[in-house]
């Protein structure tokens, strides 16, 4: 039997923080098999259209997606899902899940977040099972990606803040990975973009911790248009 049958990290036990870190690094690693590499959140169209042509343009586009786009919204949905799960507030959790699932700007972004959420839950069930997961999932019609991470994290007793920062890091890294393949950019340039976005991630995480469900919102009209126009892009490497 695996060691995590009981699932939740015993908070009193020594090494609890390290166990949380181990799980967090696993779930948010690009190697965690939810297929993140196959989505670009519309970046593929933005590169095709010439909006993103170098590292500076990629950094600017992603900073906006973090601050005023899906980065902030998804971060806030994770926060609300984590809190509702931790409080065992099933009604609240199902509200958060419903809102997050409807809060997408295009068919492909819906596919992106719903498919990754579903995969995340399935792998959590089979390899990282924990008490309460089936009950929590049963309350939700669709569990999109940020809700899945918040929910599973809370059930395992992973604290919210590191989980949130890990999630945003994974999100940005995945965007940069897509962008660097498309532009294309070298590995050093990609790392420079990631380094430059660190303060933006920190600020976005901070805002999302204090955002009510009604505060969640975005203004990335052209990033949303990019994900709409990607549907008819002639040659595509990515599913979004």
């Amino acid at each position: 039997m695996t060691t995590n049958d009981a699932g939740r990290i015993p908070s009193a036990a020594g090494g609890a923080e390290l166990a949380a870190l181990y799980r967090l690094l696993t779930w948010l690693s690009p190697a965690f098999p939810i297929g993140g590499f196959s989505y670009s959140s519309g970046l593929e169209w933005a590169v095709e259209a010439g909006d993103i042509c170098d590292a500076a343009a990629l950094r600017g586009w992603l900073a906006t997606m973090l601050t005023d786009g899906s980065g902030f919204c998804d971060a806030a949905f994770l926060v609300h899902a984590h809190r509702a799960t931790e409080l065992d507030d099933i009604k609240r959790l199902s509200e958060v899940a419903e809102l997050a699932a409807a809060f997408v700007p295009s068919r492909e972004r819906q596919l992106e977040t719903a498919a990754q959420g579903r995969a995340f839950i399935e792998i959590a069930r089979s390899a990282w099972s924990c008490a309460g997961l089936d009950e929590a999932v049963a309350q939700c019609d669709v569990v999109v990606y940020p809700v899945a991470v918040g929910m599973v994290g809370a059930l395992h007793g992973v604290p919210l803040e590191p989980l949130l920062h890990g999630f945003l890091h994974a999100l940005v890294s995945n965007w940069i990975s897509a962008g660097s393949r498309l532009v294309p950019l070298g590995q050093t340039d990609s790392q420079r973009v990631l380094a430059a976005l660190e303060p933006v991630v920190v600020a976005t995480a901070d805002r999302s911790l204090h955002a009510s469900l009604d505060d969640i919102g975005s203004a990335t009209f052209r990033a949303d248009l990019a994900s709409l126009r990607h549907e008819t892009q002639y040659t595509r490497l990515f599913r979004s």
């Binding site: 933005a46 909006d51 600017g60 906006t64 005023d68 699932a101 919102g217 975005s218």
Partner: peptide, 30 residues
């Protein structure tokens, strides 16, 4: 937007502060 009681679309557009400056950003309105 709800259809048959189910929430099918939700969106909040949120712009504040120097809106002209934000609209200038390529991912917002270029």
């Amino acid at each position: 937007l709800r259809r048959g009681g189910k929430l099918v679309f939700a969106e909040t557009v949120r712009l504040d502060g120097d809106i002209g400056d934000k609209l200038a950003q390529p991912a917002i309105a270029n």
